[in-house]
Computed example of a mutant assay.
Amino acid sequence: MSLVLVSGRSGSGKSVALNAMEDHGYFCVDNLPVSLLPALLEKVHHNHADIAVAIDARNAAEELAQFDQIFDQLKAEFRQPHIVFIDADENTLLKRYSETRRRHPLTDEGMSLNEAIDRERERLSSIAMRADLLIDTTNMSSNALRELIQQRVLSHRKNSVDILFESFGYKNGVPVDADYVFDARCLPNPYWDLQLRPFSGKDEAIQAFFQNQDRASEFIWQVRVFLETWLPRFEQDNRSYLTIAIGCTGGQHRSVYVAEQLAAYFRQTHPQTQVRHRDLRS
């Protein structure tokens, strides 16, 4: 039996994630009171079903206050549960609510929408702190979120850290859901070669450029050594997901090349290793 707890602020995409898991055969329960979670699992675990449960701020405050105690109990009685926490920045959540005209669950307590979104973050902080996987949907479509859930959660192998190498451009901000961030702006930039500028780090021309750069080889080697040193510690700690972000100025050349090279290397020992290019132009 696999147990996945899905949480996050309202409007972040929890329903999309839960629907994707239901389509994949998970037994899904939305808006379950925290105190009922042990009873639910006791009821269904004999069926060996994969279970996904959404727990969020629709729970009463006194229910959420029990989460740490109940989660520790689940860890002792069941196979290591996973927590997926989905979020977005405040402006995005406000925009989504204005577009859908839905009511925020905490506005019933006399708060404004802005106050409710901020208070929701506080109420869910203990769950977010325990999350195995953080997903920021600020710039993500529903289809992209479904695809990410498919890649990182539904295809996750037991007893193996699921690794994602994500390239990005610093001009668009650092990914907030990354576990490690490495800055590749110290490498030579093919952008300044007008013949290379139209290509990306996935193209042969850029790959040939970096293969002649000792600094690029050394950078990749040192990141590899760091990760190879610490990956076993993550696995010993039952860590399920690890996101490594590689950044350059625009997210087109250096970060893409480095992310591709690292993913290819670690895929040999961790077949579920994936690569994502956040800012790469299609």
Rank of each mutant, 00 (worst) to 15 (best):
R233M: 12
A60M: 07
D118A: 15
L5T: 00
D279C: 13
Q69Y: 07
F226W: 04
L262W: 03
A17C: 07
I246R: 00
Q222Y: 07
R224A: 10
Y97F: 15
D50P: 09
L148D: 04
E235P: 06
M21L: 10
N19L: 08
L3R: 01
E77N: 12
V256P: 06
R123Y: 02
M140L: 15
F210Q: 05
R101D: 02
D89H: 06
E63N: 12
T229H: 11
P232H: 07
Y265P: 03
A49E: 10
R146K: 15
D118R: 06
D193L: 14
A264V: 13
D50A: 13
F165T: 07
I51P: 01
F210R: 04
L40N: 03
Q211N: 14
N31A: 02
F168D: 02
E228D: 04
S15H: 02
M111L: 14
P198R: 03
I149E: 01
L187N: 00
L106W: 02
D68C: 11
L242D: 12
K158E: 11
R102L: 10
F27K: 00
G173F: 08
Q211S: 09
S282C: 14
F165K: 00
M140Y: 04
R9M: 06
V275F: 09
A144S: 13
L94N: 01
G173P: 04
E147A: 15
I117C: 02
Q274E: 10
A54V: 08
D72H: 11
I220S: 09
R103L: 15
V256K: 02
